[in-house]
């Protein structure tokens, strides 16, 4: 399996298709839960006085490592159980702080047929509830030509 239970095939996708994954309001508790799961003790994710007074940041920062999870979740879920998320790249261009609502998004920009599967390129990013983009990037998903032929793995390395 790859992601989700849906089956998506190459022929069902068109340039301009757009997808989103809303993660909703992110609180101090969400940041603490992620920091604890990762054993990441950087104070900028849970110590408000240190973050604001010592580091001069606007608030507790939502970890870049958490934001990248949202992008991967979005693309993996969209690829479905027969497709495969080939790659994702992104830049952390702006900070997101606790109290924001984040939405990962992606839009199909290019389609290319390969011998055994089709490759779908998507622009992607993360926007907050003020519509500010923080994490622009690009993803590539491999999709099968028919539902009965899942993309094989391990996917060939470059």
């Amino acid at each position: 399996m790859s992601g989700g239970e849906n089956v998506r095939v190459y022929g069902s996708v068109a340039v301009g298709d757009r997808i989103e994954l809303q993660k909703g309001l992110l609180t101090e508790a969400h940041l603490m839960r992620w920091s604890a799961a990762m054993e990441n003790w950087h104070k900028i994710h849970y110590d408000h006085p240190f973050t604001v007074e010592h580091e001069r940041l606007p608030g507790l920062l939502i970890s870049g490592s958490l934001k990248q999870q949202f992008i991967v979740q979005l693309l993996r879920g969209w690829a479905g159980k027969s497709g495969w998320l080939v790659s994702a790249s992104f830049q952390f261009r702006a900070m997101n702080v606790v109290g924001e609502e984040l939405t990962a998004w992606a839009e199909v920009t290019e389609l290319r047929r390969e011998a055994d599967y089709g490759l779908v390129t998507l622009d992607l990013g993360i926007r907050n509830n003020s519509d500010k983009e923080s994490t622009p990037g690009r993803g590539v998903v491999a999709l099968p030509y028919s539902a009965g032929q899942p993309v094989s793995r391990p996917f060939p390395s470059r």
């Binding site: 992104f90 830049q91 996917f155 390395s157 470059r158």
Partner: peptide, 11 residues
């Protein structure tokens, strides 16, 4: 400075 990252997924 962090110039970004790319991840290639195999399995």
């Amino acid at each position: 400075l962090n110039g970004g990252m790319r991840v290639d997924f195999y399995d």
